[in-house]
């Protein structure tokens, strides 16, 4: 088995269809561009009051399901890809093994919840962007990308879903999200602690890791999917992020980055639609 596993080789059964981030970003459509009417206020935040709330929640749950699979794979690869001692501390690898178990449980939980919500495994495309963040060959960058950016996103997603379940009165959804949220806060803390410890005497490496995290955070803002704006389906879970060891300044940075991603996505969509119309006219 080789070290460093490429994202396009992630093994899946025949139910799954994988797409990359660039494929999904090439889609010229965006819910952000839906017409704003009195009946249909321009809020995409995932709340039960959204008319399509159940379907949107089902789709997000499938996204969580495949995200958990990739998080499981990423944590497992960190156990394998780095030599103990010379490339990664023993204790860091133990943390990653623990995380693999946690993520395996999260996959189990997501499968059960997906069934409960009426969707099937593989019903939606799997975006492999999360594993892409787990492909760095520097363990510190990998932790910054996975444990701080990816797991930070998980905190935001689970907080939104937990609130959704609470308002809808769905006992399973709220219960499960609460448990998963506890694990994700632990995972982010692991990332924050290791980042601090390993780069204690290496400010350059720390700077590089934080820059990488910021890039990943922006990608994970999924063109506006997660931000403080009500136009984003997923909000920024400030309180739980604080618990997980993000400083106020770091949370503000992520808030800025995700708002920028939202605006950029709108601009991209406008441009992509104009291009498609032009191409169509020319053909």
């Amino acid at each position: 088995m080789r070290k460093f596993f490429p994202v396009d080789s992630l093994a899946r059964d025949s139910r799954f269809n994988q797409i990359t981030m660039s494929q999904s970003q090439a889609d010229p459509r965006s819910p952000l561009m839906a017409a704003d009417t009195d009946k249909r206020p321009k809020a995409n935040r995932l709340q039960p009051s959204r008319p399509d709330a159940s379907d949107a929640a089902r789709s997000l749950m499938h996204g969580i399901f495949v995200g958990e699979i990739q998080a499981l794979e990423g944590a497992g690869r960190t156990c394998h890809d780095f030599e103990t001692g010379t490339e990664a501390p023993f204790a860091l690898k133990l943390d990653m093994a623990r995380q693999a178990w946690d993520e395996a449980r999260h996959v189990e939980i997501s499968v059960k919840l997906s069934e409960w919500m009426g969707s099937e495994i593989g019903q939606y495309a799997e975006n492999t962007v999360l594993f892409e963040a787990a492909c760095s060959t520097d363990p510190v960058l990998r932790l910054a990308g996975v444990n701080r950016a990816l797991e930070g996103l998980a905190i935001d997603v689970f907080t939104t879903m937990k609130e959704f379940g609470g308002i809808a009165g769905d006992p399973y959804l709220e219960f499960c999200e609460d448990w998963m949220l506890a694990d994700e806060v632990t995972h982010v803390k692991m990332g924050s602690d290791w980042l601090r410890r390993i780069t204690e005497n290496d400010p350059d490496r720390r700077k590089k890791a934080l820059e990488f995290q910021s890039v990943v955070d922006k990608i994970f803002s999924f063109g506006g999917t997660r931000s403080d704006s009500q136009e984003s389906p997923i909000g920024l879970a400030r309180r739980f992020r604080e618990l997980a060891g993000f400083t106020d300044a770091e949370v503000e940075d992520i808030a800025d980055v995700s708002l920028r991603a939202l605006e950029e996505r709108k601009e991209f969509t406008r441009q992509a639609q104009a291009d498609a119309v032009e191409q169509f006219a020319a053909s």
Binding site: P48, W116, S119
Partner: peptide
Amino acid sequence: VNPQRWKYNFRNRHGF
């Protein structure tokens, strides 16, 4: 059709 999908939506609007 997947009845569970519609049951889930129905529960969201009527109660679990």
